[in-house]
Nucleic acid binder design. Structure first.
Ligand SMILES: [Mn+2]
Ligand SMILES: [Mn+2]
Ligand SMILES: [Zn+2]
Ligand SMILES: [Zn+2]
Lengths: 153, 153
DNA sequence: GCCATTAGTGCAATTGTGTTGCAATATTCG
DNA sequence: CGAATATTGCAACACAATTGCACTAATGGC
């Protein structure tokens, strides 16, 4: 499943200078192999049975990956955090899409520059986040009879 | 506290055509009187003692206000939802600021147009959200000795 | 104004995601 | 190898939000 990403993950973890542990490598490999942002539960589900990583450890590893710039975290409307490997494709700042039905999150390429906004005096800007909300392909009500089953919920 | 807003709130609730109830009026009045987006807990705390609205009802009323376009909901990084009355000032789409320390959310005027983004085929855009993250005036580490106590947490 | 209809509410229990404390384990470095 | 200590596993916890259901009250017709 994420087997071919393990080498990459090991290298990435080693590059931080911190200890290289199985949970860190396996979780990052799962993120590398993912086509979209994953929730904690999804990461856990995608870990190979043999990996056996504790729930709490997965939480801590995900946090650690974000702190070490190996992943980024997206806070969704549904109170669930989703994580993406910080790959080359999405190295810089970029926009996100979130499905308002199933919660799916994907990274987007950004066309123009982000608009400037004026903050009240004393406020300090750190980061600008642009999120498109809408329906993913799986959640758009089909005009023609549906062939695929609705994914989650 | 929110006494002078009650009339406005009554009118707004009535305008939806749905039943006018004390919880709806009181909660909306609290939002009208607020200078920033409020969490459920903050709304509850600002309701006059005499109002006596159940916790769950406050949740349901807030949701109802959003569905009826009398308020809008902002999902923060801290997994807490915040609500703002949909006043004239912030009738249209606008950006938000969220403090990454205390979680405070305020509405912002937007300067330029929102940048266009291209969605994958089959995806449908509903809404664009722009959020500035940073530190609010109360949370910016003071260069000069602090006089005001750190607000919340 | 009274009453029937039913939308809205209160209360208790429950869910779901994420956190904390602490003892046990495993990585790294000399 | 063995010490130092970063990381993990486990259990308990925190807390916003949701659900089920019986009870209450707003509304509209009479
Ligand atoms: Mn991303
Ligand atoms: Mn707003
Ligand atoms: Zn979807
Ligand atoms: Zn703040």
């Amino acid at each position: 499943m994420a087997t071919d990403k393990i080498g990459l993950a090991e290298e990435a973890v080693r590059s931080t200078g911190a200890r290289m542990t199985r949970p860190r490598v396996m979780v990052l490999a799962v993120l590398f192999a993912a086509e979209r942002a994953l929730t904690h539960a999804e990461v856990e589900a995608r870990l190979p049975r043999a990996a056996e990583v504790d729930r709490v450890t997965v939480y801590r590893v995900l946090e650690w990956l974000v702190d070490n710039h190996l992943a980024h975290k997206i806070a969704g409307d549904d109170r669930v955090r989703r994580f993406n490997a910080a790959s080359h494709a999405h190295a810089g700042p970029h926009a996100h899409f979130q499905c308002s039905d199933c919660g799916e999150v994907i990274c987007l390429e950004e066309a123009g520059a982000k608009p400037a906004v004026k903050l009240p005096v004393g406020y300090k800007q750190q980061q600008v986040e642009l999120t498109i909300k809408g329906l993913c392909a799986g959640c758009v009500p089909a005009s023609k009879p549906r062939t695929v089953a609705r994914h989650h919920h």
